[in-house]
């Protein structure tokens, strides 16, 4: 380990570690890119890919993100963008859960869908993509439907859970299991021009309150479907929340929900 550390320090440019040296160290010392990234960050070196993060996210927090584990439940419209942004942000471990394969009606918005991935599992496409864009990140693909029965094992030890589901009853199960494993939950939902975001910490009951009137129905998405931009907007707001939860900065969206209307460009806050 000391040998790797010395190598990285020697080849760093000031405190930045260029990709070619990170990649060489991985092959040379027989370590994963992720293992090299951890040694670099612990030695006070920032992999160069994160240099535009650093005024927003300190090196210490970059290490915190690398040591973090996020679970993304649902890999469709919201989930694709969420996984992409978590991986680029440098969150070290991502569990991605979705039982589905890509279908043609996903192509208008789901980031990892393409004619080539039609019929392929969504979690498989996510896995491949993350490996391509940031091989320091480990993505655990789970091609299963999340439920209260299998959820506990999936979420145990996770630092943040991100809701990218398309079903209200399953969302409520996700909120329940997140509370059980003591993990913060970042909720997002979309429909047409509209979307919403909220963050729930263990002990809070926000999701249950948000869906208190209708626990088994569908929302505006039933009649409206989803265009390309709404999932990207809401997913980005969710990743900003997840990032803050992981590094303990800023003011999270707790005990309130943002309701976003892209048609009339209005954002409303609803207290819970």
């Amino acid at each position: 380990m000391e040998e790797v550390r010395t190598f990285l320090l020697k080849h760093a440019e000031e405190d930045l570690l260029p990709w070619k040296h990170q990649s060489f160290a991985s092959t040379h010392f027989g370590l994963s890119i992720g293992q090299v990234e951890r040694i670099a960050l612990e030695a006070g070196l920032l992999p160069s890919r994160y240099q535009r993060n650093r005024k927003t996210i300190s090196l210490a927090n970059q290490l915190r993100l690398f040591r973090s584990h996020a679970a993304v439940i649902g890999c469709g419209g919201l989930g694709g963008y969420i996984i992409e942004q978590l991986a680029r942000l440098g969150v070290g471990r991502i569990t991605a859960v979705d039982p589905d394969v890509f279908e043609e009606h996903n192509l208008n918005r789901q980031l990892y869908s393409s004619p080539a991935t039609l019929g392929r599992p969504k979690v498989e496409a996510a896995h491949k993509r993350v490996l391509e864009i940031n091989p320091a990140v480990t993505l655990y693909p789970l091609k299963v439907a999340f439920s209260k029965t299998n959820g506990f094992d999936m979420l145990q030890g996770v630092d943040v859970v991100i809701d990218a589901l398309d079903s209200i009853p399953v969302r409520l199960e996700l909120a329940e299991v997140s509370a059980e494993v003591n993990a913060p939950l970042v909720h997002g939902a979309i429909g047409g021009w509209y979307g919403q975001v909220a963050t729930q910490f263990p002990g809070e009951n926000t999701l249950r309150k948000i869906y208190s009137r209708n626990t088994d129905g569908k929302g505006v998405e039933k009649g409206l479907g989803n265009p390309s931009f709404t999932p990207a907007v809401i997913a980005s707001l969710q990743v900003a929340e997840a990032c803050k939860v992981l590094i303990g900065q800023g003011v999270p969206l707790t005990n309130r929900k943002l309701h976003v209307n892209l048609l009339e460009m209005e954002v409303n806050e609803i207290p819970y």
Partner: peptide
């Protein structure tokens, strides 16, 4: 009065 939103 707000509508329900539940898609993903």
């Amino acid at each position: 009065i707000f509508p329900l939103v539940g898609g993903g």
